[in-house]
Design a protein around this nucleic acid. Structure first.
Lengths: 113, 113
DNA sequence: TCCTTAAACAACCGATAGGTTGATAAACGA
DNA sequence: TCGTTTATCAACCTATCGGTTGTTTAAGGA
């Protein structure tokens, strides 16, 4: 494990934008074309198309073909990979950090193995 | 809900960097100072300090005071907020998208409520 | 007081993210 | 074939990111 770092980079980066998160939310209710996805936003279609490419490179969405349309749909598996990463760390007990100063002082005082 | 968009922006952005994720991983095992956190990396201490500031602004970590040291520790609550966001969408059934073309064609053909 | 340690501040730099406009490609419909 | 729709490609611009080096602040210790 650990070599999927670039995949996590691109996936978290992809979610770090409100437009792209909004697209994810929309796609959770079913697939949509670029035009449909662009409609709620005030930015250009090209900009939305770029956002979709970012999501696609992060493998958070996939695309198919329907005549001229390039419908986009969600890839829930990638989202699960992100929660899996986060869950490693969010389960840490708060109590572990209860007396922080004590921990630090013992590190400074005790230099033996 | 939905007005915490900026918080999600900064939190996901913060996780979109391998150094910062590594810092999170390290902190899950206990608090650490900037120097301790910087040690595993080849980049400068200032660079690590900036990374920590990014994590702090995203409220993924907090800091305290211990003499000259500014120990950093994890804020698991923020991580939970991220999984909460993702979980809204990752639970979508794959079957919903089974016959994609049919869905799209019915949208085009059927314009009544 | 003077020196050391821990860490932040500041200015700067190259790369890239997010946006724009304009042009192009691909597939259908008459 | 010609026009329309759908969407991408290409070039460009500005702001921000991740890194650097140098300076400064804060807190102890001799």
């Amino acid at each position: 494990m650990g070599s999927e770092s670039a995949a996590l980079d691109s996936a978290f980066m992809a979610l770090a934008d409100p437009v792209r998160r909004s697209i994810i939310a929309r796609l959770s209710r079913g697939p949509a074309t670029v035009n449909e996805l662009a409609e709620p936003f005030e930015i250009s279609k090209q900009a939305v198309s770029k956002h979709i490419q970012v999501l696609e490179q992060a493998e958070l969405v996939t695309r198919s073909r329907d005549a001229q349309r390039r419908p986009v749909h969600l890839n829930p598996a990638r989202l699960e990979a992100l929660t899996a990463w986060i869950d490693q760390y969010r389960l840490v007990r708060e109590g572990q950090f209860r007396s922080l100063d004590a921990v630090l002082r013992s590190q400074a005082a005790d230099s033996s193995g």
